[in-house]
Design a protein around this nucleic acid. Structure first.
Length: 745
DNA sequence: GTTGCGCAGATTTTT
DNA sequence: TCTGCGCAAC
C-alpha cells in the first residue's frame, strides 16, 4: 500500500499496528486521513476483515464520515465497517447480550431530560421537596457516578459514594437505578457501565469480544471519561492492539466527565505504548498557527507538542475593539458582506462564540444586512413537544414497561384521564408491584376485579381504546414485515393526536403538523438505510444521534466554540473575546484548570481558521440585564503583537462621544495587546441631559425617529424613541449610534 | 385542562 | 433582561 501521501510521522502512525499506540494529533494535522490509512493498512497489509477492527469516535457525524471515506478507498461495503460511537457500540452490544443483565433487548434509552423526570418521580415518592434536592442534582450525580465507571458490585463503590455532597444522594441514586430497571431502560452513562458490568461479571462474554476485535482504535481520546477508558482497557487487555488518537490541547469536555488522566496515564495501563506526534498543521497560515501556539503555551497541563506549518505566512489576525455587542455584530456582518462580494462562499466562513445567547445580537446584524446564516446545532428537532409525544407512543409499543413514556401520552390527546386518575393508576401499580402498563392492561381486561381502583366509566373506556391501539401496533411490529412509518401513521391517526393538532388553528399548530411530517420523513429515510427496519432501531438511532442532518445550507455558520471542534473555515470570526465571557466568569471564579480548559477552547476556536482570523470584543455588553465592562479576554493578551493588527469599531460621532480620559492602559505583557479599554469606574457624570422629548434623531440602524421620553443624565441618560415605522425602542444615550437632526427651517 | 403570573436563575451539551 | 418553571385561578 502506498503511503507517499503521508508525512513520516503519519506513516509511522499507520505502520505501527502492533501493541499500544498513542497518537497525539495537533489541530489540522491530518488526523482523519491518517486514521483512514491505518485501517486501510490493516485491511490490505494485515489481511484483516472489517469486522475485526473496531473504531470508536465520539459523534455519529465523525463515524459516518469515516465509514464513507473507508468505503470509498477500500473494496468493502460501507455496512461492514465497525466504526461507531461509544454509545451506539454499547447499545448494540447490550441488546445482543441483554439477558445477562436481566434486561430485555427492547430496552429504552433515556436521555438527560428523561433522567431528570425519573429523578422528579423519585423525589416525589420519597417525599423530598425538589427545592431541597433539585432533580438536576440527582441527574448530575448519576452522571458523575457512571462517568467514573460504577456498576453494581464495582470496586469503586466507596469513591462513588464520596462524590455525593448530600448523604441522601446515594440512596436516591440506587432508587433511580431500580426505577430504570423496572422500566427496562438504560441511560446514556448506563450504556457504557452496563457493558463494563457485563465484561467484569461474565468473562466468557468479554473474551468473545476481545477475540473478535483484534484491533481497537479510539478517536478524540482526550474526551473519553473513565468509564470509556475502562471499556477500552478491557477490550484491549489481551492483544494490546489499542491505538488512541487525541490532542490534550483540544480537551474541552471535562465538565462532561472527560478525564485528561486518560492521556496522561495511557502508558501505565498499556506499558510500552508507542507515542507518535503529528505536529505539522496543514490547515492554517503561519500567523494563525503560531499565534494559537503562543496562547496554548500558557497552559501547564500538557504533554507538549509543537504545532508548526509549512503554509504561507498569511494575514495578520485582526483584533477589533467594538463599542458594544451591536457594533460587534455590525462589524462582523460588514466584513462577511465584503468577503461575499470578493467571492468567498458563505459556507467558508464561520462566527464562533462562547455562549449561545451571544448569537442574538449577531443574528440581528446579519438579518439587517440580509446575509444568509445558519446556526449549527441549534434547537433539537427531537426535543420538540409533539415529536417527543409521538416518540413516546412508539416507545410504549416497543417497551411497554417504559412508564415514563406511558405517563406522558396517557392523556395526550386528552382522554379524561387527568392527574387524579393517573395517580390512582400509579398507586395501584406500585401496590401490586406492576409496571404502569401491566396494570392498565389488567384493569381493562378484568374491570370487575379492579373496581376498587375507582376509575370512572369514561376513563375505563379511554384506557380500553389506548390498550387496543397499542396492542394492534405491537402486532404489526412483531409481524413478518414491520414498517415503522406505517405504525407511526396508525398511532398518529388513531390516537386522535392528529385530530387534536388539526383543531389547533394557530400558527403553532401548523408548525407542529409540519414537524410531525418531518418525523415521518425521518422514519422513511430510516427505512431506506436498513433491511430490517423496526421501531426499536428507529428510536435508538434518534436517541443516540440527535444531530441535525447534513446542512445543505451554503450560508455562514454560527456556532459555539464547542460546536466548532473538528470543523474548518477559510475565515473565522471569534466574537465576544472578553474576560468573564471567554473565559467564562465561572472558570475565572474557580481559576486554575478551569481557565486552562477555557484556553483550550479558545485555542480550538482559533485553529478552525485557515486564512483569516478576526477576534472581536466589546467595550460594553448587555449581560443579564445590565451593561458590563469586562475588558478584552486575557487570551487576547497572550497573542504577541507581531501576529495581529488592532482596529476599533464604534458607531459614529454619537451624542455621547467616548472621551479619551475614559480610556486606560491595561497591564499586559509588553509585546501583546494593550489597547485602550473603557473603564467602568470612571464613567463621567454629564451635567445635563442631551435629549428632550420631541427632539428628532437619526439612528444609524433604525433611521429617523422622535424622542418620546428622556430620563437620567450624563452616562446614565436613557431615552425612548419612536421610529418612523412606529417601532419604539429604548436606548442608553452613551452607546446608541444616534445623531440629532435639526428641523428644517 | 388551560392560561397567566411571579420568581429564580442564567456556560459549554459529541451521546 | 429574558426565559422557563411551578403553582394558582379560571
Amino acid at each position: 500500500m502506498d503511503l507517499s501521501h503521508l508525512n513520516p510521522a503519519q506513516q509511522e502512525a499507520v505502520r505501527q499496528t502492533e501493541g499500544p499506540v498513542m497518537i497525539l494529533a495537533g489541530a489540522g494535522s491530518g488526523k482523519t486521513r491518517t486514521l483512514i490509512a491505518r485501517i486501510q493498512w490493516l485491511l490490505e497489509e494485515k489481511g484483516m476483515s472489517p469486522f475485526q477492527i473496531l473504531a470508536v469516535t465520539f459523534s455519529n457525524k465523525a463515524a459516518r464520515e469515516m465509514r464513507e471515506r473507508l468505503a470509498h478507498v477500500t473494496k468493502f461495503d460501507i455496512g461492514t465497517f465497525q466504526v461507531t460511537t461509544f454509545h451506539s457500540f454499547c447499545a448494540r452490544l447490550l441488546r445482543a447480550e441483554a439477558q445477562y443483565l436481566g434486561l430485555s433487548r427492547n430496552f429504552t434509552i433515556f436521555d438527560d431530560g428523561e433522567t431528570t423526570s425519573v429523578a422528579k418521580t423519585i423525589l416525589g415518592r420519597k417525599g423530598i421537596n425538589p427545592k431541597d434536592i433539585a432533580p438536576g442534582t440527582i441527574g448530575w450525580y448519576v452522571d458523575q457516578v457512571k462517568n467514573l465507571g460504577w456498576f453494581p458490585g464495582s470496586p469503586i463503590t466507596q469513591r462513588a459514594q464520596e462524590l455525593a455532597e448530600d448523604p441522601r444522594l446515594w440512596d436516591l441514586f440506587l432508587e433511580y437505578e431500580a426505577e430504570l430497571h423496572r422500566s427496562n431502560a438504560v441511560d446514556f452513562g448506563g450504556l457504557i457501565t452496563g457493558v463494563l458490568q457485563l465484561f467484569e461479571k461474565f468473562p466468557e462474554v468479554r473474551e468473545r469480544y476481545q477475540a473478535r476485535f483484534r484491533y481497537v482504535l479510539v478517536d478524540e481520546y482526550q474526551d473519553t471519561n473513565r468509564a470509556q477508558f475502562q471499556l477500552v482497557r478491557l477490550l484491549g487487555a489481551g492483544h494490546q492492539n489499542v491505538c488512541v488518537v487525541g490532542d490534550e490541547d483540544q480537551s474541552i469536555y471535562s465538565w462532561r466527565g472527560a478525564d485528561i488522566r486518560n492521556i496522561m496515564d495511557f502508558d501505565e495501563i498499556f506499558p510500552g505504548a508507542r507515542l507518535v506526534k503529528l505536529e505539522q498543521n496543514y490547515r492554517s497560515s503561519k500567523k494563525i498557527i503560531e499565534a494559537a501556539a503562543h496562547v496554548i503555551a500558557h497552559n501547564t497541563e500538557r504533554k507538549g507538542k509543537k504545532l508548526w506549518t509549512a503554509n504561507a505566512e498569511g494575514n495578520p489576525i485582526e483584533i477589533v475593539e467594538c463599542r458594544d455587542e451591536r457594533a460587534e455584530g455590525d462589524y462582523i456582518a460588514m466584513k462577511v458582506k465584503a468577503a461575499l462580494r470578493e467571492g468567498v462562499k458563505g459556507s467558508d466562513m464561520a462566527v464562533i462564540y462562547r455562549t449561545n445567547s451571544q448569537s442574538r445580537a449577531l443574528e440581528d446584524s446579519f438579518r439587517r444586512e440580509r446575509i444568509d446564516y445558519h446556526i449549527v446545532a441549534g434547537i433539537k428537532f427531537y426535543e420538540r413537544k409533539e415529536v417527543k409525544d409521538l416518540l413516546s407512543y412508539m416507545r410504549v409499543v416497543v417497551n411497554p414497561k417504559d412508564s415514563l413514556a406511558l405517563a406522558r401520552i396517557i392523556n395526550v390527546p386528552t382522554r379524561g384521564i387527568g392527574a387524579t386518575s393517573l395517580r390512582k393508576i400509579e398507586d395501584e401499580a406500585v401496590r401490586l408491584n406492576l409496571s404502569l402498563w401491566e396494570l392498565v392492561e389488567r384493569v381493562v381486561s378484568q374491570p370487575t376485579e379492579h373496581k376498587h381502583v375507582g376509575l370512572s366509566a369514561k376513563v375505563m373506556s379511554s384506557l380500553g381504546g389506548l390498550v387496543t391501539l397499542i396492542h394492534e401496533v405491537q402486532v404489526l411490529e412483531a409481524g413478518p414485515n414491520p414498517l415503522p412509518s406505517y405504525s407511526y401513521e396508525k398511532l398518529l391517526h388513531e390516537s386522535g393526536y392528529l385530530e387534536m393538532l388539526k383543531a389547533d388553528r394557530s400558527h403553532e399548530g401548523a408548525a407542529r403538523l409540519e414537524n410531525l411530517d418531518e418525523l415521518l420523513t425521518a422514519l422513511k429515510s430510516f427505512e431506506g438505510t436498513t433491511d430490517t427496519p423496526t421501531l426499536i432501531g428507529f428510536l435508538e438511532t434518534i436517541t443516540l444521534d440527535s444531530e441535525k442532518q447534513v446542512d445543505v445550507n451554503a450560508s455562514v455558520g454560527f456556532m459555539t466554540a464547542h460546536g466548532s471542534k473538528g470543523l474548518e473555515y477559510l475565515r473565522v470570526f471569534i466574537a465576544g473575546a472578553e474576560d468573564n465571557l471567554f473565559p467564562s466568569f465561572r472558570s475565572l471564579e474557580s481559576g486554575g484548570t478551569a481557565v486552562e480548559e477555557e484556553r483550550r477552547l479558545f485555542y480550538v476556536a482559533m485553529t478552525r481558521a485557515m486564512e483569516h482570523l478576526t477576534i472581536t470584543f466589546a467595550q460594553g455588553r448587555m449581560l443579564w440585564g445590565s451593561l458590563k465592562f469586562n475588558g478584552p479576554s486575557q487570551f487576547v493578551g497572550e497573542i504577541p503583537a507581531a501576529y495581529f493588527e488592532k482596529k476599533f469599531h464604534g458607531t459614529g460621532p454619537v451624542a455621547a462621544p467616548v472621551r479619551h480620559d475614559e480610556f486606560d492602559q491595561r497591564s499586559h505583557d509588553d509585546d501583546s495587546y494593550g489597547g485602550p479599554v473603557l473603564q467602568q469606574r470612571r464613567s463621567p457624570a454629564r451635567v445635563s441631559a442631551l435629549y428632550v422629548s420631541g427632539q428628532k434623531v437619526l439612528h444609524a440602524l433604525y433611521g429617523q425617529g422622535t424622542v418620546l421620553e428622556s430620563e437620567g443624565a450624563g452616562a446614565d441618560e436613557k431615552i425612548l424613541i419612536m421610529f418612523r415605522d412606529g417601532v419604539k425602542k429604548r436606548f442608553m444615550v452613551k452607546f446608541a449610534p444616534l445623531q440629532r437632526v435639526e428641523e428644517a427651517p
